[in-house]
Design a protein around this nucleic acid. Structure first.
Length: 492
RNA sequence: CGGGGUGUAGUUCAGUCCGGUAGAAUACCUGGUUUGGGACCAGGGGGUCGUAGGUUCGAAUCCUGUCGCCCCGACCA
């Protein structure tokens, strides 16, 4: 791993280190299309693990999967005023539907004859097309709640991109729900936020702060935006999932009404919620060290890798005999195990490579172990090695994986908590924010104060955190009274 | 779109100031020896130096235009 360590030292900043890690760990690479990313098999395997788990959790709340079109008629986007404001600027637009060969017959040009009457927008998010569809699906209170989720790609023509954290095209899921009452919709939005927080902490081992966004940071068209905010190792915040209470804005814009039990016509109440491949970025930036990725067992495509050390064929056979029962046991218990007995790479190379890829547990077995009836176990999170009897090793590895999962969260949480501070002095804040971290500060609730902080420190209000004991105080910038503390941080 | 950097072998880069046969490491291919922390030896393949034009006997190197990429900022999941 000397190579990556050097890069870390040489790296001018954390972003550079992160980009190198993404490439070296074989997760993704840059595509030929500006701002887009090729997700490589190993990176995609992590996404698949996330999808599987999230899908289970969504279905447990009653949501169903569906799919809506990639292309959205331009007029749909102008139906909801705030939504237009928020998304109009950064969309890819389809204007023609045909190409033709050029005059010199060595290429193609856009056929001017094939101009669309109405341009189509490559979805930056699907609220509009989904609400246009929901209009036809909802007539009665009996049709509610309607809860659909779709796994898809979206495109936003971002000015500046980084792999996984912000790409022009990205994979995500977006849930869109319709409810009969305001209370039910609000509850749904909050419930989904809890699902995301649960997933982040218990599967990704990424501790998050749950809270509600300030007006300026709110989703375009929402009444409330709930967020989970994670802290990366450079102390910057990463918005890792959002859940929006949309009120009746989209119902009114797309005329989605239902007859209630009293036979009265009412607009439905809406929510939307989503997480994206950005979660992979959060995973990388929360846990990785200079040896590479550190993946939580719950999401690691390979949970256990076994490296045999055997030069001669007869020795290899003995190693196989000793280890194959262990592999079978682990696999039948549902663990993903890789037995890397390829003889074209030396053990040292494999050790470094699987560390780079973040495999949680590594087992090594060779002649020395065969004599002693032992096996070497290494855990990726702490890099600790120990030699144990091979007897009962499968059971030991299973408890070890559970322990790694738990330890990663504890470690990340302790690290993060040490970087969360209350702060009541703006001058002090300006100094401290340079080193990153979350700051709990009183805020007078005005956009002016928010803008001033952003302008002077590049930090933004991440959220008003839930579950934090609030007492009234004074805004550190304006000196005006404040009802609650908010989380302020620099962010990705 | 502003500021800074950079385009040379699959990859990371040296060579550019001061013009003169296209380089290194790594990766790759072949053969052999190896295998408990990124192996070694021998041999081999691979680049019209981003691109267009100019200066010159001669350009990766100098001049002009142009395009791409990276980092920092504005925008955002």
């Amino acid at each position: 791993m000397a190579e990556l360590k050097d890069l870390t030292k040489r790296a001018e900043n954390y972003s550079q280190w992160y980009n190198d890690l993404v490439v070296k760990a074989d997760l993704a690479e840059q595509s030929a299309v500006r701002g887009c990313m090729v997700i490589k098999p190993y990176g995609y395997a992590i996404w698949e693990k996330m999808q599987q788990q999230l899908d289970k959790m969504f279905k447990a709340t009653g949501a169903q999967n569906a799919y809506f079109p990639l292309l959205i008629p331009k007029s749909f986007l102008s139906r909801e005023a705030e939504h237009v404001e928020g998304f109009a600027k950064e969309c890819a637009v389809v204007t023609h539907y045909r190409l033709k060969t050029n005059d010199t017959h060595d290429g193609v040009v856009v056929d001017p004859e094939a101009k669309l009457e109405e341009e189509l927008i490559v979805r930056p998010t699907s609220e509009t097309i989904i609400w246009n569809t929901y209009k036809n699906w909802i007539q009665s209170w009996r049709d509610l709640p309607l809860m659909c989720n779709q796994w898809c790609n979206v495109m936003r023509w971002e000015m500046r991109t980084r792999p996984f954290l912000r790409t022009s095209e990205f994979l995500w899921q977006e849930g869109h729900t319709a409810h009969a009452t305001r209370e039910e919709a609000e509850q749904e939005a909050q419930q989904m936020l809890k699902v995301y927080a649960d997933f982040a902490e218990n599967y990704m081992a990424v501790p998050v702060v749950q809270g509600v966004k300030s007006e300026t940071e709110r989703f375009a068209g929402a009444l409330d935006t709930y967020t989970i905010e994670a802290m990366m190792q450079d102390g910057k915040a990463l918005q890792s999932g959002t859940s929006h209470f949309l009120g009746q804005n989209f119902a009114k814009a797309f005329d989605v009404k239902f007859l209630n039990k009293e036979n009265k016509e009412e607009y439905v109440w809406a929510t939307s919620w989503g997480v994206s491949t950005r979660l992979i970025g959060a995973l990388i930036m929360t846990h990785s060290d200079d040896n590479g990725l550190v993946l939580p067992p719950a999401l690691a495509p390979i949970q256990v890798v076994i490296v045999p050390i055997a030069g001669k064929p007869e020795q290899k056979q003995k190693v196989d005999e000793a280890i194959i029962p262990v592999i079978s046991k682990l696999q039948s218990d549902g663990y993903s195990v890789k037995y890397d007995d390829a003889d074209n790479k030396r053990p040292g190379f494999k050790f470094a490579d699987y560390e780079l890829k973040g495999v949680p547990v590594r087992l090594v077995i060779g002649a020395r172990d065969l004599e002693n009836g032992t096996i070497e176990v290494m855990r990726r999170d702490t890099l600790e090695k120990e030699t144990r009897p091979i007897e009962g090793i499968a059971e030991y590895v299973e408890t070890l994986l559970a322990d790694i999962q738990k330890n990663m969260l504890v470690k990340a949480k302790a690290w993060r908590d040490a970087k969360i501070h209350e702060c009541d002095n703006y001058e002090e804040f300006k100094e401290k924010i340079k080193e990153g971290g979350f700051f709990l500060c009183h805020w007078d609730g005005t956009a002016e104060t928010e803008a001033k902080i952003k302008e002077e420190t590049q930090a933004t209000i991440r959220c008003v955190p839930f579950g934090y004991e609030q007492t009234p105080g004074t805004d550190m910038v304006s000196g005006k009274p404040s009802k609650a503390r908010v989380i302020i941080a620099r962010s990705y």
